[in-house]
């Protein structure tokens, strides 16, 4: 999603990170709704084992929370190079 009021590189970064995270969130939610249960019984999706004895549900849940912070930090660090923009400037 393009964002106004930002210089091009940061706008591109925000767009990319937004869609990456949205895709991960959508995959998680769709997996919960359509691929985890059949006839009320767990058959796959979030019920599958991931690693260290944890299920995909637990790993994906923590991953989405931690991933949001990682992407936010990435945006903050990479975007700081564009900080010299004129206050109030638009594209």
């Amino acid at each position: 999603m393009p964002t106004s009021h930002r210089p091009g590189r940061r706008r591109w970064l925000a767009t990319t990170l937004f869609w990456i995270y949205s895709a991960a969130y959508a995959a998680f939610v769709l997996a919960a709704a359509f691929w985890t249960f059949h006839g009320g019984e767990p058959v796959g999706g979030l019920a599958l084992p991931a690693f260290a004895g944890l299920s995909v549900a637990v790993v994906a849940g923590f991953g989405l929370i931690a991933g949001a912070f990682v992407l936010a930090m990435l945006y903050a660090v990479c975007g700081s190079h564009d900080e010299a923009e004129t206050p109030g400037a638009h594209r």
Binding site: T3, L17, F18, Y25, G61, A68, A72, Y75
Partner: peptide
């Protein structure tokens, strides 16, 4: 069990929209 954690995930994920789309404009 996990159902409460779904709220945690959903509430936190919403901040991505805030950061990348809404905050600065």
């Amino acid at each position: 069990g996990y159902d409460g954690f779904l709220y945690s995930i959903g509430y936190l994920s919403g901040w991505i929209v805030a950061l990348f789309v809404i905050a600065e404009p």
